[in-house]
Design a protein around this nucleic acid. Structure first.
Length: 265
DNA sequence: CTGAACATCT
């Protein structure tokens, strides 16, 4: 399957980089990934006795995690002798994206026990786990521990995660105050999370405020208009919806596309 | 060479 002959009849054997790239493609393919193809690559690895290196193992975990095959992801992880921070991040992420927030957080304990130092990606994943599991206290503690315990300076992604954590738990007031107290200007991703929190809570007034700032930052981002307009609509605030429509036209966005802006790019 | 990453919209 994997051996290809070129025009001159040469046979090319895939090396580690080839297999890792292919697995990454399977994991990131839109529409839930390509599990069948990923499994075929795993089969190839087994049949040809290809050594499962740290890179290859991590790519396998990620592929299985993202295609919903958590069992296989865990199996690959358990068999790996050498693990790096990416390997741990991949398994924690697999657990989170398959609804096992608690287990993901337990895995972080194992990681620390094995003296593996987490990095900024680890915390994005952990904070996401807390947001989904509604573990507000723990999430805030983890966020604080980044700088105090692990010497990692939280970046805008982490602030966005905390806003999402508070927002999902219905703590809109806290989310808003958290943004106000950020050490740098909140960027679009943070304001986007706050706007999402407004939607959950149905707070039109704050949404109005945040939405205006957000549209100043991203006047061409049609998704932002959609969220804001939905918040207005849910509240029956047709006046604001009409006004928003005018702003859209002014910014040259004349129509909400049938499909996602991101999906069509 | 090659691996890990939140959330929101139709």
């Amino acid at each position: 399957m994997m051996h290809h002959e070129d025009i001159l009849g040469c046979v090319v054997t895939p090396n580690e980089a080839t297999l890792v790239s292919l697995l990454s493609c399977c994991a990131n393919l839109e529409g839930g990934g390509a599990l069948i193809q990923g499994k075929q690559i795993h089969c190839y690895i087994i049949r040809n006795d290809v050594e499962v290196t740290v890179f290859l193992g991590t790519a396998l975990i990620s592929m299985y995690g993202r295609t919903g095959c958590l069992r296989n992801a865990v199996e690959v992880f358990d068999r790996m002798i050498a693990k790096e921070v990416c390997t741990w991040n991949a398994i924690i992420c697999s657990l989170v994206s398959n609804g096992r927030e608690k287990q993901a957080l337990d895995m972080f304990q194992n990681m620390k026990r094995e003296m593996m130092k987490p990095n900024e990606v680890t915390f994005v994943v952990l904070l996401t786990a807390c947001a989904r599991g509604k573990f507000v206290e723990l999430g805030l503690r983890l966020f604080k521990s980044m700088s105090s315990e692990f010497a990692i300076v939280p970046k805008t992604e982490h602030y966005g995660c905390v806003v999402d954590l508070l927002g999902k738990a219905g703590l809109l007031e806290e989310a808003s105050r958290f943004v106000d107290r950020m050490p740098f200007e909140p960027d679009a991703s943070v304001l986007g999370a706050l706007l999402g929190a407004c939607k959950v809570h149905g707070d039109v007034e704050l949404a109005d405020n945040v939405g205006k700032k957000l549209l100043e930052l991203q006047p061409q981002h049609c998704g932002r208009y959609i969220v804001l307009s939905n918040i207005y609509a849910e509240a029956g605030n047709w006046g604001s919806a009409a006004e928003l429509r005018k702003v859209m036209l002014e910014n040259g966005i004349d129509k909400i596309p049938a499909y996602s802006c991101i999906g069509s790019m």
